[in-house]
Write a protein that binds this DNA or RNA. Structure first.
Length: 402
DNA sequence: GTCAATTCACATGAAAGAGACCACGGTCTAGTG
DNA sequence: CTAGACCGTGGTCTCTTTCATGTGAATTGACGA
């Protein structure tokens, strides 16, 4: 029994992959050179340069859609500054935080706790009062003379979940620090989100603003070419593959990350097939696989209540044609809860769950008004037809429905 | 026919509760010398 | 005498409920032409 598996793994090691270094295509990789972002790099460098004279730079706000290189550019520039600062012995510290990461920095407590940990303070995941954590944070900051650059990625998520008080506290923090200074860099996908925050915070947070425009198809092609050149063996990429990836990503508002993902997965697919090269059909397959993995992952890992809600929608969808409305779904949902043996939530909550399923892209829910007949969500399933049977099966087993 | 008021069926917001998890400090218990 | 077990209190976090308020256009009904 052990032998076949063993040889399987052996073969895995010895089999030549078309990848040289897959890491280059993963989204957490920071390249040594960044294409098509020269202007932005220059502006950021200008804004941050006072650091090297130990003066606090202006706070900076960076906008741009996903996959426009915001994070990469900011990290790259700060890394370069850190290098120079290191050579001249300037005590500068850069803290990068992704606020979207669950359990890391999506509340005020966790954010401060996480930064404090970067300063070597042990902070329990819960239990302490928030102002206590602030105190620890202050002491850690102020223990020596230094300038701290705090990069808050996906800051809109943080504000959405935790309110804008955090930003108020953070922007005010400099007034209380004696030795140190804090400079904030906020990164956001959502251009409109600043409109929702307190104007006082807005003005102090975004002393400077930079907008990252989407890449166009040509630019994405160039990015893919440079990365793919190092990530893959020579000559394994067929004609037109890069172009197709780029076109796909350009369709999605110039999202370079999507393009890189697509190329990587296409490579994996080709590898598994044992094809020695990436062909155009692998891209199509990768596109399907990415979508499939995403959907199946959501469906199997989300809480029971979400599964019941989704199951109701799928079931109702089979019985009648779209569009479906909230009220109908709630009725089915209640019945299903009965059958499954869990307590039904209120309509208020189910309404939110439907909203979240929409955000996840599993369904399409649009609020419409049917005039005299009220206001409701018009719901349709947006899962590819081919995946439906598989999803039903997952839901059924997970909910113990035959 | 026109136009404002009405009305429906939820959407959306705010606040507060339940229950899980956790730190901290005080008290109790058992083992040790 | 002391280390460790065991509370009680007070904190955060997530998921929910409760209560309140908002909303957009089909429908209604009064009004005037």
């Amino acid at each position: 029994m052990a032998e076949p598996l063993h040889t399987y793994f052996e073969r895995f090691i010895t089999k030549d992959s078309i990848f040289l270094d897959k890491h280059l295509l993963q989204s957490n990789y920071t390249p040594t050179a960044i294409l098509h972002r020269d202007d932005q790099i220059k502006v950021i460098a200008d804004i941050l340069s006072p650091l090297l004279k130990m003066e606090k730079p202006s706070n900076l706000f960076v906008y741009g859609k996903t996959g426009t290189g915001k994070t990469v550019t900011v990290r790259y520039t700060t890394n370069e500054i850190l290098k120079v600062a290191g050579e001249h012995n300037k005590p500068i510290k850069v803290c990068y935080l992704n606020c979207k990461m669950k359990k890391i920095a999506d509340t005020e407590y966790r954010l401060i706790a996480h930064i404090s940990r970067m300063f070597g303070k042990a902070i329990p995941p819960t239990g302490l009062p928030t102002d206590e954590v602030y105190n620890i944070f202050f002491k850690a900051l102020d223990s020596s003379k230094q300038i701290v650059v705090l990069i808050l990625d996906e800051i809109d998520q943080l504000i959405h979940k935790a309110g804008d008080e955090i930003l108020y506290n953070l922007t005010r923090i400099n007034e209380q620090l004696v030795n140190s200074q804090v400079c904030l860099i906020g990164i956001s996908n959502d251009v409109l989100f600043v409109d929702n925050i307190d104007p006082r915070i807005k003005s102090s947070l975004s002393e400077e603003e930079i907008v990252f425009p989407p890449y166009n198809a040509i630019q994405i092609q160039e990015i893919l070419h440079t990365r793919a050149g190092k990530a893959f063996r020579e000559g394994v990429i067929n004609e037109g593959v890069i172009e197709k990836c780029a076109a796909y990503a350009a369709r999605e508002h110039g999202d370079a990350r999507r393009a890189l993902d697509l190329l990587r997965v296409a490579g994996e697919v080709a590898d598994r097939e044992g094809a020695g090269e990436i062909m155009i059909k692998h891209i199509d397959e990768a596109e399907r696989k990415i979508e499939k993995d995403r959907v199946l992952d959501i469906v199997s890992t989300y809480p029971k209540q979400f599964q019941v809600a989704l199951h109701s929608i799928v079931a109702l969808r089979k019985r009648q044609k779209e569009p479906l409305y909230t009220g109908e779904i709630y009725e089915i949902y209640k019945g299903l809860c009965n059958r499954v043996g869990i307590s039904a939530l209120t309509q208020r909550r189910v309404s939110d769950i439907v909203g979240e399923l929409d955000m996840l892209g599993l369904i399409n829910a649009k609020v419409i008004s049917k005039g005299r007949y009220g206001r409701t969500r018009e719901i349709s399933l947006s899962i590819p037809q081919a995946l439906l049977p598989q999803i039903e099966e997952i839901l059924d087993t997970s909910l113990n429905l035959r």
